[in-house]
Structure formats: C-alpha cells, structure tokens
Computed example of a mutant assay.
Amino acid sequence: LSRGYGGRLEGPIRVDPAAHTAADVGDEPLMLAQGSPVWIARDRVAGASAAVAGGAQALVLDDGHQNPALKKTISLIVVDGETRGDEWPFGDGSVFPSGPMREPLKAGLARADAVVVMLPTDVEAADPELLAVFGALPVFIARLTPEGPPPSGPQVGFAGIAKPWKVERSLKAAGCDLADFVPFPDHAAYSAENMSFLADRAAVYDAGLVTTEKDWVRLTPDQRAQVVAWPVVARFQDQAAFTAFLNDWLQSAR
C-alpha cells in the first residue's frame, strides 16, 4: 500500500503493470507490482479499505511511519547502515526543513517495534555506534544483493535514485565491466534527450546500458528495449530470526 510517488493517479487503485505507467502510479508501486499486489492511495484509510475489499489479508505500508491514519500491527524503521562523514547517522538530527529528519529521532524510535539496518554487500558488520542509537529495539541486518550477475561486456550504467553512487559501486563489486556511470536525480523522468545522451555514451565505449529495476520501469517500452535492468533483492543476515519476529507479532494481533 503506497502513496504512489510522482504518479498522476490518486487512487485508491490497484496497480496494473500491463496497463499503468510510472507517470500514472509512481515508479516504486509499478516496480513492486511486478511480483505482488499493490494499491496506491493518497488517503491511507481509503487505500487500506480498497486492498481489503480486493482480498488482502495483511497490508505492508510504504513510508507510513509518520502517518497516524492507520493503526499499525508492526512498525519497522529502515536505516541506511553505511556511515559517511556528516551524514552519520541522521545528519545533524534537525527536523525538516532545517534538516533531514521528518520528526525527532527519539519520537520516531518510540513508536517503532524494530529496526532494519541495510548494509552494502561489501561491509561486514554494522557500526556499533550506530546500533547503540537504537537502544533495546530489535535490530535486523539486511543487504541488497543481486538476483543475478550484471550483463556481460562493457556497460554504461545510470540511475536516478537517492544515492546513485551506490548503484555504481554495486555494479563494480558484482564484476561489471563498467565503462562509465551517469547519475540522475531521484525519480527522474527520462526524456528523449537523456536517452540519446546515454546511447551516445554507450556508443563511445561500444557498451550496453544497464540500470536499476526502479529506473527501468520509468522508461518507455522503446527505451526499455535498449536497456538491461539489473534486479537486486533485500536478504536478511538471519532470515529465520526476522521471519519468527514477524510471525510472533502477527499471531498476537490475531
């Protein structure tokens, strides 16, 4: 159940990958709908009602921690576990618009039931100082891992996500022969000029074009024919422990 970032449709509506575009429903809902039922709605309650009417027995809310409209059975905070200079761990702790936080950290953690720390594949363990921030909350470590190898041969990569340099590093770590990499703004809509520029870069290196699934769904069918999507999936360091945690909460809710 998502708000449908950037989409022109407000919902509630079930996302249909065969009928909708990223411009309709947003890139993340469209990407997720490739494998699971997804509803978008500006109104969380209306969206939840539509999903339940459509047969949903459990709802996973995207980006719903600060929205009080629906009572949550479990609230998970997902944290970037890579520490980088003054970004660590939550900037200077200031709340928007003077800082990166949507609310004070203490208030957000007080409503959370657990924390998921996302680590790069080449970082062995989370920083102990970061883990200490979460106090007694359960912490689960996860990593975005490739579902398969990157395409063979020279490649020009591109990505329009919050931290595109992570895609570049991940491709290199996976063994991609990355000739060049072009970053774009998050949720970027790829124009004909953008694609022409990328095609020219690929021609310079006699290379293919590779990007993320999230970027790929924002392309037109003709553009997709020129680009390979490189899918990744979140895998937990201790999948059994995370599954048991979820099952305990769901059983208690029933």
Rank of each mutant, 00 (worst) to 15 (best):
V139D: 09
P149V: 01
V156W: 01
G153M: 06
F197E: 04
A179Y: 01
A202M: 03
A192Q: 11
T145A: 07
D122Q: 10
V227I: 02
E129I: 05
R143T: 10
V217L: 14
A188H: 15
D122F: 07
V117S: 06
G208E: 13
L209D: 14
L171P: 00
F158Q: 00
Y205K: 15
P146T: 04
V133N: 06
V167D: 13
T211Q: 13
P154K: 03
G157N: 03
A174P: 09
V115C: 10
S152V: 08
T212K: 05
F140H: 10
N194W: 08
P151G: 07
A142E: 04
V116D: 14
D177F: 00
L119I: 12
A207E: 14
V182L: 13
P151L: 09
L119F: 15
D127Y: 10
G153A: 06
K172C: 06
G153T: 04
T211F: 07
V182N: 02
V228C: 10
G148Y: 09
A112D: 00
V204H: 08
E168A: 11
T211C: 15
L171D: 04
G160K: 05
I161K: 05
V217N: 10
A132Q: 09
K166A: 13
S191P: 02
G175C: 05
P185N: 10
H187Q: 14
K214F: 03
M118S: 14
A173I: 00
F140C: 10
E147C: 09
V116G: 11
K166D: 07
E124A: 13
